[in-house]
Amino acid sequence: MDRRRFLAGAAAAGVAGLAGCGTASGTVRPPRTPDDRLDEGGWERTRADTEEVLSRTVGGVDVTATAVTRVYDDAALRAAVSERTLGAIDAPLSNVFASRIAFSPNLADIPLESAREELADRAGEVARGQFESQLSSAGLTDVSGSDAGTLTVETGEDASLTEYSAAFEFDALSFDVRGETVTIEEGSVAVEGLLASWIHDGGLLIAGGAYPAENFARTVDRDLSEAITVTVDVDLGLTPDAYREEVRGIVRRVE
Rank of each mutant, 00 (worst) to 15 (best):
residue 107 L to Y: 03
residue 126 V to P: 04
residue 82 S to D: 12
residue 218 R to N: 06
residue 145 G to S: 06
residue 70 R to I: 04
residue 74 D to I: 01
residue 194 L to H: 04
residue 71 V to W: 01
residue 173 L to D: 01
residue 151 L to Q: 07
residue 175 F to A: 05
residue 123 A to D: 04
residue 35 D to W: 04
residue 158 D to L: 12
residue 91 A to D: 15
residue 89 I to S: 08
residue 158 D to M: 10
residue 70 R to M: 06
residue 144 S to V: 15
residue 36 D to S: 15
residue 47 R to S: 12
residue 32 R to V: 08
residue 163 E to N: 10
residue 142 D to H: 10
residue 140 L to P: 02
residue 149 G to K: 14
residue 24 A to P: 00
residue 186 E to Q: 08
residue 128 R to C: 04
residue 15 V to D: 01
residue 125 E to F: 06
residue 146 S to E: 10
residue 53 V to F: 01
residue 114 S to M: 13
residue 4 R to E: 11
residue 59 G to C: 10
residue 79 A to D: 15
residue 26 G to T: 09
residue 178 R to E: 14
residue 121 D to W: 02
residue 203 G to M: 05
residue 127 A to T: 03
residue 185 E to K: 14
residue 253 R to H: 10
residue 142 D to G: 14
residue 189 V to T: 12
residue 252 R to E: 10
residue 153 V to P: 01
residue 60 G to H: 03
residue 30 P to G: 07
residue 147 D to R: 12
residue 8 A to T: 06
residue 180 E to K: 13
residue 15 V to M: 09
residue 157 E to Q: 13
residue 50 T to Y: 00
residue 153 V to C: 07
residue 225 S to H: 09
residue 132 E to H: 01
residue 23 T to G: 09
residue 138 A to G: 07
residue 123 A to E: 00
residue 101 I to R: 03
residue 242 A to K: 12
residue 132 E to K: 03
residue 159 A to T: 03
residue 229 T to I: 12
residue 146 S to D: 07
residue 223 D to R: 15
residue 85 T to V: 02
residue 224 L to D: 03
residue 226 E to H: 14
residue 60 G to V: 10
residue 235 D to L: 09
residue 205 L to K: 07
residue 215 N to L: 07
residue 157 E to P: 05
residue 175 F to Y: 05
residue 248 R to E: 14
residue 240 P to C: 06
residue 241 D to N: 09
residue 239 T to K: 15
residue 201 D to T: 02
residue 10 A to P: 05
residue 197 S to Y: 02
residue 142 D to L: 12
residue 242 A to Q: 13
residue 143 V to D: 01
residue 122 R to S: 15
residue 32 R to M: 11
residue 170 F to L: 09
residue 91 A to L: 09
residue 119 L to P: 03
residue 133 S to M: 11
residue 136 S to E: 10
residue 133 S to G: 15
residue 26 G to I: 07
residue 174 S to P: 03
